[in-house]
């Protein structure tokens, strides 16, 4: 305050310095009163710094320019009745700032508390919702695909298991027929003595016709030969028998798995195997057994020429 008279560009100073003093007396709480003298002290020419101020403030110039115009006007003709106008305007400013602080806090707190969706715009919400919907349907279709593939795999496993069981069963049957697997079941034990190869072959064919499934032939020394479709019997020199290349000596024991009663009947029909062997001077004894074990095996043969047609 004491410097002011010494300031060079004091063209507008005196009114300014008068004003704060008066305002201080009349309304000491008015912020203008406290800030104004300082500003006046700091910046002797108030108009000068603003053009040089910066270009950033261009946006604000609309208002500040008006204020710059309004200021001299106020300085000149606002002196009478200034007290009333200032207090009402000050009260208005106070109300406005109170409302501003109120809304600022309210907005801050409402922004603080909400979880993001509450203040989202309608189109944003719709977009989010449709995003979620499409994601949901995508995931649903993925679930459906996975479920169907799971069903497929399960049924595939079941089918494979069934096929495997079937194949195992078939392999067992074929192994029994081909002589590569041992077998057991009800059947007959036939002991023949003093017979030739033709009688053995007859008996085998008769047994096959009557339902005999698996057979083996022992010699007297316990040597066993599995009889299969390709078996052959030849009379050996000096008595005895060659079955599938193995020499056997009598009496011969033929174990056969099949329906015992049917096979016995088939062998005993008039003019059948038993009758013809007896008439040739040999002997045949039949014994029905509930369990016949066929343990002799043949090696599996690899077919050299035949191939499946399908």
């Amino acid at each position: 305050m004491t410097d002011e008279p010494e300031l060079p560009t004091a063209g507008r100073k005196p009114p300014h310095t008068d004003e704060p003093v008066a305002m201080l007396d009349e309304s000491p709480a008015e912020p203008a009163a406290s800030a104004f003298p300082a500003a006046a002290d700091d910046e002797p020419p108030p108009v000068e710094p603003r053009p040089a101020d910066d270009s950033v403030a261009d946006e604000a110039d609309g208002r500040t320019g008006e204020e710059a115009q309004a200021e001299p006007e106020r300085v000149t003709d606002a002196k009478p009745g200034r007290k009333r106008r200032l207090t009402s305007a000050g009260a208005l400013i106070a109300v406005l700032l109170a409302v501003f602080g109120f809304t600022l806090v309210v907005q801050l707190r409402s922004n603080d508390g909400d979880q993001g969706l509450a203040t989202a715009r309608q189109e944003d919400l719709v977009r989010i919702l449709s995003d979620l919907d499409s994601r949901d349907s995508r995931l649903q279709s993925e679930i459906n695909g996975l479920e169907s593939s799971q069903r497929q795999l399960t049924s595939g496993v079941a089918g494979r298991q069934a096929a495997l069981t079937e194949a195992d069963k078939r392999a067992d049957e074929l192994g029994l027929l081909a002589g590569t697997l041992p077998g057991r079941g009800p059947g007959l034990r036939i002991v023949m003595d003093k017979v030739n190869a033709a009688a053995i072959l007859n008996a085998v064919q008769e047994l096959r016709g009557a339902g005999g499934e698996v057979m083996q032939l022992y010699g007297s020394d316990g040597t066993a030969v599995r009889i299969v479709a390709s078996s052959f019997f030849v009379d050996a020199d000096g008595g005895g028998l060659v079955a599938d290349g193995i020499a056997l000596s009598g009496p011969y024991t033929l174990d056969v798995i099949g329906p015992p009663q049917t096979m016995q009947t088939a062998l005993q029909i008039p003019g059948g195997v038993v009758a013809s062997v007896n008439s040739d001077g040999g002997s045949v004894t039949l014994e029905q057994r509930t369990m016949v074990e066929v343990t002799a095996l043949r090696k599996a043969t690899t077919l050299q020429y035949a191939r499946p047609a399908s």
Binding site: H16, F36, A60, T64, E67, L92, I93
Partner: peptide, 21 residues
């Protein structure tokens, strides 16, 4: 803007109220 005008020494009550609203 009002604070700046105040510091510039060109604060006007009416201006401030009107510009605020």
């Amino acid at each position: 803007g009002g604070v700046r005008a105040k510091l510039d020494g060109i604060f006007d009550d009416k201006q401030f109220v009107i510009s605020f609203i």
